[in-house]
Amino acid sequence: MKTSNALLPLVGVAILLAVWGLTTALKLVDPVLLPSPLATFRTLWEGMLSGKLGADFLKTVMRTISSTAIAAVIAIPLGILLGSSEKLYRSVEFLIDFFRSTPASAMFPLFLVLFGVGDRTKISVAAFGAALVILFNVAYGVMNARKTRLLAAKVMGASRTRVLFDVMLLESLPQTFVGLRNGVSLALVIIVVAEMFIGSTDGLGQRVFEAQQLFDMPGMYAAIFAAGALGYTLNLLFLLIERRFVHWAGR
């Protein structure tokens, strides 16, 4: 019973592959537009192992990770600072919400002017988008620290600094991880779009775009799946880190 439950998520995958396989086998769709699953996954496998796809994949990983890391280094301390004073947060809340709602892709031209064509632009736009998401979550995590827990520490004679480090920081960790997970997802989206359109020569976005231009459909699907796998893995990675370090979340 238990093993069968663990296999449930595979049902959807099996159905998708079956429908896809059947569609291509019966030639319901032009084979040029939709290659068979086998051809697609062979291209993916070979591309990842020996071809350019693997290199592009790593490039996108590096860019996404560095932009998220930059965002975290800036946004976490700032979020703690803003969150620890509600007045301070309220006074910049509009700015944060405004820029959080601004599509980061609309900022490309601005960042191009600032940083030129290259990695610095892609990484800084993604970092900008991710930082706002992380900042907002960290600040709310700190502001929503349980009052009883803060009082309990205070009653035991803890100083303000001690309350901040021993209680507030840990109280905000679950929300911080929500921010990090959303931040890394957003960073990946921005990086892939940037790779497509701002003079890139590598990266998954560029790979998808180029495959489409060359009408290399298996290559395009392979690159899309690689991007999907990357997004899923990054999310899973943060979830595992969260479970390890924030074992009390939701309990």
Partner: peptide
């Protein structure tokens, strides 16, 4: 009263 929120879950 609220032990759940008074203890440190970490």
């Amino acid at each position: 009263q609220n032990y759940r929120e008074a203890l440190f879950p970490w």
